[in-house]
Design a protein around this nucleic acid. Structure first.
Lengths: 189, 189
DNA sequence: GTCTATACACCGATAGAC
DNA sequence: GTCTATCGGTGTATAGAC
């Protein structure tokens, strides 16, 4: 595989992702995107001919693949162990000193119109994955679905508080509590 | 009190608030703000001479006063009943078919630099108010603070899911669960 | 207090040289 | 594949008439 210039596409997308997460779709100006990659606006258009919307689409796809690998794949084991592993994956998926959820940032203004459906589907898949793990452990369907929704809700709430407090403590605390809750639920099963 | 033209300042601010909530600080263009109020850009500058930043500051102050009245004031009773009443206030504070948290929307990009500290203080006050209710009911300090953080986290997570699913069901479900949790906690106290 | 008209910077996007 | 230069449009903000 030949070395593609100075930055691989994946490296570009990762740098772009940070800008979209921190600024949202409309706040992510071509100037910011240009600065963070070290490429001129024209060079960005060479790589992403349809401009900002295509950049955001690549970022979302990259992030979605990351979510798939770290968070959703462990759930396919359909067991409590898989669910615990998935929570571990959440901690890695939402990395950094102040984790930010790309989906949350993109769900404002123009971004919501462009990517709202895609984001909704990702969340639905996540929810279903968690619920299926619980069903395999003997939960009934309403309980499993409610617990799954609650888990995602806690993680998303923790991510909001991470942005408020400029730390990743709420996320770590939330994941610990979720793992604990799951363990207790299994014992009383 | 004389009728101040066609819209009172409070009415203006409420209309502006919707734009900032749905679009964030950078996404809230003067065109959108002008359209939603029915005022020209120049008229907006008459009422808010420092422009968009002043509009957002007024919106945040108005929303903060609303939070104070509906959510924080009930907590000053420092009792479980006050806490239950506050949860009811949360449902009213986050009104509409798809509730959106202004603080979340403003914590992106330029908005975070302008209003991050103010938002952090509002959340801290909220957290303290909840914890004080629990302390008055006999909880120890770490438990009270953890429960308070968890409650706010759940509400914020629910609000994120409301935006994902375009409904207010997650918020209502979350508040029901919180009220239930509180009742159970009191029984085992 | 409202408006039209305008100033000027920045935005997303493109042309074309190297 | 990268850049400088530039386009048209939109962004925030102002001037000044009514």
């Amino acid at each position: 595989m030949a070395r593609p210039a100075r930055l691989t596409k994946a490296e570009m997308v990762e740098k772009l992702e940070a800008v979209f997460k921190e600024n949202g779709y409309e706040g992510a100006s071509l100037k910011l995107l240009s600065d963070v990659t070290g490429l001129s606006k024209a060079s960005l258009y060479h790589h992403f001919p349809k401009g900002k919307e295509e950049m955001a689409a690549h970022v979302l796809a990259h992030s979605g693949a990351h979510l798939q690998k770290l968070v959703l794949a462990p759930l396919s084991e359909k067991s409590a162990a898989g669910l615990q592993a998935s929570f571990g994956g959440v901690a890695r998926y939402y990395g950094g000193a102040v984790p930010i959820c790309l989906m949350n940032s993109l769900l404002l203004g123009e971004g919501r119109a462009l990517f709202g459906n895609q984001i909704g589907q990702a969340v639905a898949a996540w929810r279903k994955g968690i619920a299926d793990c619980l069903l395999a452990e003997g939960a009934n369907k309403p309980d499993a679905e409610a617990w799954a929704m609650d888990a995602i809700q806690r993680i998303q709430g923790a991510l909001v508080l991470c942005r408020v407090t400029l730390s990743r403590d709420p996320l770590e605390a939330s994941l610990s509590a979720l793992k604990q809750d799951l363990t207790e639920w299994l014992e009383t099963d």
